[in-house]
Simulated scan of single mutants.
Amino acid sequence: MVAMNGTRPDDRLSELVSLELASLDPYGLRPGAEGGAPANEYDLEARDIATLLRSKPSLSSDDIDRVWYDWFGESLTAKVGRERVTDLLLRLIRLK
């Protein structure tokens, strides 16, 4: 199914996850800001997390940390702290 704006629901979930990751901005890259990284900086990681959101009945911070470790060699929790990851996790779950 394709929405009127031409995006598929799967694509839209990935976009929303990417926006959440950009808001968290664990590396201070300022995606989409003038002089910052491209707005789609976290799209690849977002796709992996969106896949988990679609396929798992529940998502945990360990799931997010595994994706992050695959991409960056460190857990997101180690980078930004448990509280920020928990806040992200709650926002991501609401996207389902």
Rank of each mutant, 00 (worst) to 15 (best):
L90A: 15
L19E: 15
L19Y: 08
D25E: 09
T77H: 12
S58G: 03
P31C: 04
E74A: 09
E45M: 08
L53E: 04
P26K: 00
G36C: 11
D65W: 01
E45R: 01
D43Q: 13
P26A: 00
G28Q: 12
R54D: 03
P38H: 09
T86F: 11
D70M: 04
D65S: 04
T86M: 13
R94H: 13
D10R: 13
G36S: 10
V17N: 02
T77S: 15
D63C: 01
L24T: 10
L24V: 06
A22T: 10
T51A: 12
K96G: 10
G6Y: 06
L90C: 06
S61M: 07
S61K: 09
I64H: 05
I49Q: 00
W71A: 13
L16I: 07
D87F: 11
R12K: 08
R47A: 08
P9L: 02
D87V: 12
R8I: 00
T86R: 11
D63I: 01
E83Y: 03
L59D: 05
L16A: 13
V80I: 14
L24R: 05
R66L: 13
D11H: 12
I64A: 02
R94A: 14
G36I: 05
G73A: 03
S60M: 02
S60E: 06
T7L: 13
G32S: 03
E41L: 06
G35V: 02
V2E: 15
L89N: 02
Y42H: 07
L13K: 10
E15R: 12
M1L: 13
D63L: 03
S75Y: 00
A50Y: 07
L16D: 11
E83I: 07
P9A: 01
I49A: 00
E34F: 07
V2S: 10
A78G: 14
K96C: 05
M1G: 15
P57H: 02
G36K: 11
S58T: 14
L88C: 06
R84G: 03
L19Q: 15
W68N: 10
A50Q: 06
R12N: 04
R47G: 14
N5W: 09
D25T: 09
R66F: 08
S14K: 14
S61A: 15
D48K: 04
A3H: 15
T86C: 00
A46L: 00
D11L: 09
L21A: 03
V80Q: 05
K56I: 03
V2K: 14
N40A: 11
T77D: 06
E41G: 01
V67N: 00
W71V: 05
Y27T: 02
L92W: 01
P57W: 02
L29Y: 12
V67C: 05
I49P: 07
G6M: 08
E45D: 08
P38W: 03
D62Q: 13
L29E: 15
G36A: 06
G81Y: 09
R84Y: 08
G6H: 09
E41V: 06
K56D: 02
R84I: 00
R8K: 14
L44G: 10
R30L: 12
